[in-house]
């Protein structure tokens, strides 16, 4: 099953490599990983997506908790949560295709954030499945480049992850 794990850790050099090292050393897979400092600059927040059995994910959260620099770990998929991912796509946009792409971007509530006479750069946010849907809809041959951030997640309502 796909699990989305959120963790707070000390914003220190090397903390990220401890997490990454743990996954490679114990053979856990990482589908995506995103990390940045929080409003408290001493803390970083990481969102990890992994696909594994519940037993393995239980071990993953236990092993993450054991890392000295990890302050809190929560498996967001255990409750209601929201996840978002940002994607930038550069596509070839010429002639009639320019209008068609513009319409598709509007349908997906994206933005065109850079324009040349031959290309558009599109910004799209949403759950990973929406970004996948966009890529499946657009004419693949027009895609020049894509970059995705990986999922960030947060619990709904009163579910709060704080140090």
């Amino acid at each position: 099953m796909r699990h989305i794990i959120s963790l707070l850790m000390e914003n220190e050099a090397g903390a990220l490599s401890r997490v990454a090292g743990l996954f490679s050393a114990r053979g856990y897979n990482i589908e995506s990983l995103t990390v940045a400092p929080t409003e408290d600059p001493t803390l970083s927040r990481m969102t990890l997506v992994t696909v594994d059995s519940d037993d393995v994910v239980e071990q993953i959260t236990k092993q993450l908790n054991k890392l000295i620099e990890v302050v809190k770990v929560v498996d967001l998929s255990e409750g209601v949560h929201i996840e978002r991912e940002l994607m930038l796509v550069k596509v070839r946009a010429v002639d009639k295709g320019r209008d068609e792409i513009k319409r598709l971007v509007d349908i997906f509530r994206g933005h065109i954030i850079d324009v040349t006479d031959k290309s558009y750069t599109i910004e799209l946010t949403g759950p990973g499945s929406k970004l996948d849907a966009f890529l499946n809809t657009i004419d693949r041959s027009t895609i020049l480049e894509t970059v995705r951030t990986g999922a960030s997640g947060i619990g709904r309502g009163e579910r709060i992850l704080k140090a």
Partner: peptide, 14 residues
Amino acid sequence: AIGITRPCVKHNFL
């Protein structure tokens, strides 16, 4: 030293 010992220490500090 931090990198090379990371998988075999409880923790390490530079």
